[in-house]
């Protein structure tokens, strides 16, 4: 039986309700939260600042470093022990790689820009929400950027391509592919692409097409969140 009716009643290309706000952490030079469904990410930017350990420094340009973390009570089941895991290390790396193409740190040799992303509650799509929050926070910090990056967890559930997979769909008892995708707003170039599951080339290409529309909707919200800080009174 094909997956024709989504578990939460959404249309196949419909995103869960979203919310975003910039400037939520006063200590940071830029910050944001981004919520999609029940997945919520806070992001804070510190720097450019001196890098430690020093051997990581690049004399040609500043380094973008991302730190992804789930709060201990943010998982679907039992409490998660705090502190780094292989999973959070890898996700931190792919988040930095997803943002790096738009960020210009050439004016800050030997320095680092740290982006901390922490999630108090999750319901799938955490790395995508993290990228969306981080992109707003970097812009809010006034870091020179060619463009914004928006990300969405695409999926294929029992043969049907859907946008913004939730936890229920991720663990649906059929073949499920989880495909997080990040795109640059103007060019729709892809800066994050991962997948687990199985999918045909044709279906993956269809998922990329659907992701263009989905990330555009997310981009509009990111833009709104940044502009809301500067409303004319």
């Amino acid at each position: 039986m094909a997956y024709t009716q989504r578990l939460d009643g959404r249309k196949i290309d419909e995103l869960r309700p979203m919310d975003a706000k910039a400037g939520v952490i006063p200590n940071a030079v830029g910050s944001a939260y981004f919520k999609i469904g029940n997945t919520l990410a806070y992001a804070a930017v510190y720097g450019p600042r001196e890098i430690f350990p020093r051997f990581l420094a690049n004399p040609k340009k500043g380094i973008l470093r991302c730190h992804y973390g789930m709060m201990p009570f943010s998982g679907a089941g039992e409490r998660v022990r705090p502190g780094g895991s292989r999973r959070s290390q890898e996700i931190s790396m792919v988040i930095a790689a997803a943002l790096e193409p738009v960020v210009d740190l050439s004016a800050f040799p030997n320095a680092v820009v740290d982006v901390y992303i922490d999630l108090p509650q999750t319901d799938a799509g955490t790395r995508c929400a993290a990228i969306c929050a981080a992109s707003i926070a970097l812009a809010d910090a006034g870091i020179p950027m060619r463009d914004m990056v928006s990300a969405v967890a695409m999926g294929q559930v029992d043969g049907t391509i859907v946008a913004d997979l939730n936890y229920g769909e991720e663990s649906y008892p059929a073949v499920v592919s989880d495909i997080p995708i990040a795109m640059i707003a103007n060019t729709k170039e892809i800066t994050l692409l991962q997948m687990d599951g199985e999918i045909t080339k044709k279906d993956l290409m269809a998922a990329l097409e659907m992701a263009k529309v989905a990330t555009q909707k997310i981009y509009e919200l990111q833009k709104k969140a940044l502009k809301e800080r500067f409303i004319r009174e």
């Binding site: 952490i25 006063p26 200590n27 029940n38 919520l40 709060m71 201990p72 009570f73 943010s74 998982g75 679907a76 039992e78 409490r79 108090p120 509650q121 999750t122 319901d123």
Partner: peptide, 26 residues
């Protein structure tokens, strides 16, 4: 209820200070 995955949660804002607490049961 700032975290639906916790069994109980709260966020306190005191001036610019913001702290979250989450309760898990096992």
């Amino acid at each position: 209820d700032i975290s639906f995955t916790a069994e109980g949660s709260a966020k306190v804002t005191m001036g610019d200070t913001v702290v979250i607490a989450g309760v898990k049961l096992s």
